[in-house]
Amino acid sequence: MLGSGPKISIRREEINSETCIAFMNEIMEEIQPLHHALVAPIPDEFRPRHIPEGSVFLVAEVQDDETAAPELVGSVALIPLAQGSANASGLPENVRVGEIKRMVVRPPFRRAGVAVKLLEAIEDIARTEMGLGLLALETWHMLTGAQRLYESSGWTRREVYGRYDARDSQCYDKWI
């Protein structure tokens, strides 16, 4: 658990690196117990395999003191969506859109500001480096903590988009 001392830092990690794949696998391990609560099984195309070229992957690290090695505690990916693609259906076509994916913070570090810092960093990259105007994301209905995080960070609930299913998903967007 984070106290007042540890420093949270955010850094870019190479997409599809060992660290990137490890975090994607960690997400799947964490959500496996939730599968039984879903109305429909998770389609294969939503299972993490790799992050497309042109995307950005960030990790959050915590360092207790200057002599300790940083500990990886969270991650987020930003994937630009191609207009007209199935993944972008239902989103505005007159603006460049990116999708937040693979957002995870390890349980002992939740509610400690890690996710907020990841979101702020990825939103800044989306706006300043990638020239995106709108970000979208999907989370499950049952992940109410994630929903509170997004709403407190200025995200707005929206209709499902792309290939998501309204029975399982809650979608958000944010103009940046």
Rank of each mutant, 00 (worst) to 15 (best):
M130G: 06
A166R: 11
I176V: 10
E120Y: 11
A60V: 07
Y164C: 06
E29V: 00
V62L: 02
L81F: 10
T19H: 00
G54K: 06
E138I: 12
M24V: 01
K7D: 01
A136S: 14
L81V: 10
L134M: 12
P107E: 13
G84I: 03
E30W: 00
R106D: 02
I31V: 15
W155Q: 12
P52E: 05
R148S: 14
A82F: 06
E13V: 15
M1R: 05
R158H: 13
G90Q: 01
S75V: 09
I42K: 04
G154R: 01
C171L: 02
R102E: 13
M24Y: 00
L78A: 10
A77F: 10
R106I: 01
G84S: 15
R157V: 14
Y164G: 05
T128M: 02
H141F: 15
L134F: 14
I10M: 09
D165V: 15
S169I: 03
Q83I: 08
I31E: 08
V73K: 00
A112L: 09
H35W: 14
S4R: 11
L72N: 01
V95W: 07
E123A: 15
R163Y: 00
L135V: 06
R127V: 03
L2V: 13
L81T: 05
R158K: 06
E99G: 07
Y164R: 05
N16K: 05
A68N: 09
C171I: 14
E159T: 08
P108K: 03
E45H: 13
A88T: 09
H35L: 01
A60T: 08
D44N: 10
E138C: 15
R11Q: 04
A112N: 04
A126P: 01
I122G: 05
I176G: 07
V116M: 11
R110I: 02
G3Q: 05
R102P: 03
R47C: 07
E129V: 02
P52V: 06
E120D: 11
R157I: 14
Q170S: 12
L34C: 13
P43L: 08
I51W: 02
I42D: 01
G131S: 14
A121P: 04
L34W: 10
A88W: 08
I51D: 03
L134C: 07
S75M: 12
A146T: 15
A115F: 07
T67C: 08
S153H: 09
E26R: 02
P52A: 05
S55P: 09
C20R: 00
L81W: 12
D44V: 02
A22G: 04
Y172D: 04
Q147T: 06
E93P: 08
G90I: 02
I51L: 05
R102M: 12
L91F: 09
N94W: 07
M24D: 14
L132Y: 03
F109H: 03
S17Y: 03
M142S: 12
F46T: 14
P6I: 11
